[in-house]
């Protein structure tokens, strides 16, 4: 297997700046295809910043600047001719707080395809909506009320709606920024089961505060910490089982055993 087949995303010496402040220091990270990679670490260590650099959501912060490379299909996402709009369509994102649009459930799903130049018929759109909702394990909950507002759903259902919405534009990678931090344990479990399903077809990168979640649900784990200049760095990266049972770095061991953080 070539490197390109095995990995979906490769960060090469990626540093992120907010103005003159360096928030992320030279991250190297290879995200394996059809696996779940978890980014863990204490608050403020830059996990979310790294995640948002993978689909150029950081472009929305006027002062943000990325150095180094993020390789996706042999292509640096930060090369001058790359369009962030295309990047975000191919690398989808699910946010910390469920943020459905104040529209119907149907329109929430249909929005992405429509703005991306959807040419299909109404029936095909109906099929796409059903397909996306089924893939997000939400179809049975909402099939009778597709015209109801997305905001009328419970928190866990809203988050699955957001996942379904992301799936509808057929991305290859799904970035999840603490997707369960606003949810109760049962909804959290459902999302985790869903992630297991989704990794058959998608590559998933998830930021989480919850170490049990990382240990339960992910295949690979990257542990982040702030260095002396308050810039986030990767301390250790490896298969989740190894990192949690046999950490190579003392700081990783301290963190996962709950000695700080």
């Amino acid at each position: 297997m070539t490197t390109q087949d095995r990995y979906t995303l490769n960060a090469r010496n990626m540093s992120v700046f907010y103005g003159s402040f360096k928030a992320i220091n030279s991250v190297n990270l290879d995200i394996e295809r059809n696996k779940i990679t978890a980014l863990i670490g204490p608050s403020g260590c830059g996990k979310s910043t790294v995640l948002r650099s993978f689909n150029r959501m950081n472009d929305l912060v006027p002062s943000a600047r990325v150095e180094g490379e993020v390789i996706f299909h042999n292509q640096n996402l930060y090369a001058p001719h790359v369009d962030a709009v295309e990047v975000r369509r191919r690398i989808g994102m699910v946010f910390q707080k469920p943020n459905p649009f104040p529209k119907s459930i149907y329109d929430n799903i249909a929005f992405g395809p429509r703005i991306s130049g959807w040419k299909g018929s109404k029936t095909e759109m109906d099929d796409l909506v059903e397909h996306s909702l089924r893939n997000a394990a939400l179809w049975d909950d909402v099939k009778d009320k597709l015209k109801a507002s997305g905001l009328a759903l419970s928190g866990g259902q809203q988050q699955r709606l957001c996942i379904a919405r992301a799936l509808a534009v057929e991305p290859e990678v799904i970035l999840m920024d603490e997707p369960c931090s606003a949810l109760d344990p049962i909804s959290t479990l459902k999302i985790e089961e869903l992630m297991m399903e989704l990794k058959q077809r998608y590559t998933i990168v998830i930021v989480t505060h919850n170490m049990q979640q990382a240990a339960r649900a992910s295949d690979y784990t990257a542990f982040f910490l702030m260095n002396a200049e308050r810039a986030g760095e990767i301390v250790e990266y490896g298969p989740t089982g190894d990192l949690f049972t046999n950490p190579k770095d003392k700081r990783t061991e301290d963190y996962i055993t709950g000695r700080f953080g």
């Binding site: 689909n55 959501m57 929305l60 709009v85 295309e86 975000r88 369509r89 191919r90 989808g92 994102m93 946010f95 707080k97 943020n99 459905p100 649009f101 104040p102 929005f111 992405g112 703005i115 991306s116 957001c162 919405r165 992301a166 534009v169």
Partner: peptide, 19 residues
């Protein structure tokens, strides 16, 4: 969060403003 959701789906700036 609403703008982020829209951009995250690959909407352009004008589409985000318009919709």
């Amino acid at each position: 969060s609403l703008r982020q959701a829209s951009y995250g789906l690959g909407a352009t700036k004008w589409q985000t403003i318009r919709h």
